[in-house]
């Protein structure tokens, strides 16, 4: 995973693996990032998804991967706005 910061927006790139969950959790807990851009993601591990659910940043972006675009990102976005 590669994280690209742009103010309150953090863009995640590549494959976000289980070990990246800790990095992301720390980043989100610190509080300056309120929005995640998942456009550049190739995959998201369950632990990363869980971190996003735990800290509830806004989720934006339309990744190239079908599953991410069709299902996972909409599910995370819905979750973030619903709460």
């Amino acid at each position: 995973m590669r994280i690209e910061r742009n103010g309150a927006i953090a863009a995640l790139h590549g494959h976000c693996r289980v070990e990246d969950a800790e990095t992301l959790a720390a980043l989100l807990w610190e509080g300056s990032v309120t929005t995640l851009d998942l456009s550049g993601c190739d995959s998201l591990h369950g632990a990363v998804v869980q971190a996003i659910l735990a800290f509830q940043p806004s989720v934006v972006g339309s990744p190239g991967d079908e599953f991410l675009k069709q299902h996972l990102v909409p599910a995370l976005a819905r979750r973030a706005t619903a709460d």
Binding site: Q50, A51, L53, F55, L72, A75
Partner: peptide
């Protein structure tokens, strides 16, 4: 697809990723 957490995060400082 729906994803959610089984339990809310009680204390973010103690969050176990």
């Amino acid at each position: 697809l729906r994803v959610s957490l089984a339990e809310p995060v009680a204390d973010p400082a103690l969050y176990d990723p």
